[in-house]
Nucleic acid binder design. Structure first.
Lengths: 139, 139
DNA sequence: CTCACTGCAAAGAATTTGCACTGAA
DNA sequence: TTCAGTGCAAATTCTTTGCAGTGAG
């Protein structure tokens, strides 16, 4: 909910740069690259530098406020992370990202894998790809 | 099963460079970066260039012979993709990758997500992280 | 007041491209 | 013979670092 609070609780400072970056992502419907975030955030805070965007994203991901999305293209995208554990589905057509709850289905799979491999599973990365309703219908 | 056959069937040529890259990955227990593959494959075929490794990896991934593994570190790793659909669990300790069958558990989740979001799910990326049996034991 | 945060310039990785030559089919 | 495949060098991203100035707490 209150990302500024999360920042403060972690002993981090609330700056104009961080506000600008967060505002861009709060309004984005699509995962954005650091470069794209920079371009959109700059108008909100002209002195902003790309370097600061990178540093800010690292901090926000670390605090769990953002989620890093992997793209085969090469570079990473960033989206808002909803509180709680969830995953992302990406639309192949328009690129929008929608989150969905983790689901206990995964717990079953994890237990099964632990049993089969002897690994202790600590975390996972699940990302779906598909077509959203809008991109499915007209052409 | 026979990767050379898969290559040929796709109208691709079987070259010394590709043999070297595949041989390295056939023997690797860990996902390797393009750079690492280059270093290990070069002795097998000295004229090999890093550029060719990149181009070869793209082809092999496209043919489904290799799997791209995403790492937070920044660059990609590549591992052999077993025939059939499966996923990977990565050991946080030693970096080894083990494959496990996809599991139908995911089908349930996929159906659930399609229902909830209206997306048509076409594919997914699932990667687990944990500790393998060896790394779990106190060293 | 302090020290986390910032911008800038520059360095460092990772990956791609242009081009002429080579060799698998 | 023919064109996919290749090596090299150079160009492009993408991301991180060093450093001195600035401002949030």
């Amino acid at each position: 909910m209150d990302w500024e609070r999360t920042l403060a609780r972690a002993g981090r400072r609330l700056t104009a740069s961080r506000r600008a970056v967060m505002q861009v992502l709060l309004e984005a419907a699509v995962p954005l690259s650091p470069q794209a975030i920079y371009e959109r955030a700059r108008p909100l805070h002209p002195p902003l530098g790309l370097v600061t965007v990178y540093r800010t994203l690292d901090v926000l991901v670390e605090l769990g406020l953002l989620r890093r999305v992997h793209r085969d293209g090469g570079c990473h995208g960033y989206v808002l992370a909803s509180p709680g554990h969830s995953h992302t589905i990406l639309c192949r057509g328009c690129g929008q990202a929608v989150e969905f709850p983790g689901g206990e289905d995964l717990d079953g799979l994890v237990a099964q894998v632990q049993q089969a491999t002897g690994f202790r599973v600590e975390g996972h990365l699940l990302q779906l790809v598909g077509l959203c309703p809008a991109c499915r219908s007209p052409r």
